[in-house]
């Protein structure tokens, strides 16, 4: 067998990527590519799972039966999406529970938006409209990501998420056209979630340390700022349409570029929340830890039973 040098393997690898040939689990890949994927996909999975909590907060208070079922189905979808993504992480040789433990120790991150509290029913609308809207923009390009299992998981996620944004917009537009109390509730919610939603796209391109390499590897297909701009351009007219005001006094439309120009994002706040100082960071991680700890005896029992049954059938055979 002929020896192939690492640099030759790397060249072939990049050639595949450049030709849009997907990378599959057993293919040779640079260690750094593997680690980047594990980090990114698990962060994405954690975001889905932690993302269940702020909306889960309102399941038992949903105002009618239809909303209750829809919200429940939506939060459940997020569990499903987390699972599809953990599956993709496992194809890279990373164990799911170990990945989850990294979330619990604070080593792994998740989308900082979920560290903000959901204090009113209108937040269920805003989250669907803005947070899922932003997530979809982030996710659609990943359907073309170079790593096969991640791309396939994202296709499934995007297909399922199409109803998430719509149900949110339905909630918020109904409130925006409702009674004065409802309208105030909707505006207050937009005021609280607008800036954190813009932060969801991550730091400015100049500050983003992973972007260049990830773009070259086609793990990432658009930059943070490109996606953020796209989000602002489509969302501002939607807010106007339903009569809500975007909480940005610097916001104006530039006729020449065809884009909205917006005020400065408070990046100090962003980094503090990422570091763990957001309003709900501790509650979110604690809730996940609690679920895992309190479920330990259940998981052990199921395994013990499965082993007992295997032994019993071996004796019978």
């Amino acid at each position: 067998m002929k020896e192939v040098t690492i640099s030759e393997l790397e060249r072939r690898f990049q050639e595949k990527i450049d030709n849009d040939i997907k990378i599959e689990p057993k293919d040779w890949m640079p260690e750094e590519y593997r680690q980047t994927l594990i980090r990114q996909i698990s962060q994405h999975a954690h975001s889905e799972i932690v993302g269940m909590l702020p909306e889960g907060n309102w399941i038992t208070r949903a105002p009618n039966l239809r909303r209750k079922a829809v919200l429940l189905a939506k939060v459940q979808d997020e569990a499903g999406h987390g699972l599809y993504l953990y599956s993709a992480v496992e194809t890279l040789g990373a164990d799911r529970e170990a990945t989850i433990d990294d979330l619990h120790t604070g080593k792994a991150k998740y989308s900082s938006i979920f560290n903000y509290p959901t204090t009113s029913w209108a937040d269920m609308g805003t989250i669907g409209w803005l947070v899922d809207g932003a997530a979809i923009m982030n996710q659609v390009p990943i359907c073309r990501c170079s790593y096969g299992p991640y791309a396939r998981a994202m296709v499934r996620v995007c297909k399922e998420e199409s109803f998430h944004q719509r149900q949110g917009f339905e909630i918020i537009s109904l409130l925006a056209q409702g009674t004065p109390e409802q309208k105030a509730m909707a505006q207050d919610s937009l005021n609280r979630f607008w800036w954190p939603s813009l932060m969801m796209f991550g730091p400015n391109d100049a500050e983003s340390k992973h972007t260049a390499q990830s773009m070259k590897w086609k793990i990432k297909r658009s930059t943070n700022d490109e996606l953020r701009q796209l989000f602002i351009d489509v969302t501002v007219p939607q807010a106007e349409m339903i009569g809500l005001t975007i909480p940005d006094k610097d916001l104006k439309f530039n006729e020449e570029t065809g884009h909205y120009e917006s005020g400065p994002i408070n990046w100090d706040e962003f980094w503090e929340v990422v570091k763990g100082n957001g309003p709900c960071n501790k509650e979110r991680v604690d809730a996940r830890k609690k679920a895992k700890d309190e479920g330990a005896w259940v998981r052990e029992a199921a395994m013990a039973y499965a082993e007992k049954r295997k032994e019993r059938s071996a004796i019978r055979a």
């Binding site: 699972l83 799911r96 199921a302 499965a306």
Partner: peptide, 22 residues
């Protein structure tokens, strides 16, 4: 895709709940 289950029967149940919701 994949999932976790303690035995084959549970794996089928979980697959039903995870992968056939629609």
């Amino acid at each position: 895709g994949s999932l976790r289950a303690s035995d084959a029967q549970m794996a089928v149940d979980n697959a039903r709940d995870v992968y056939t919701r629609r």
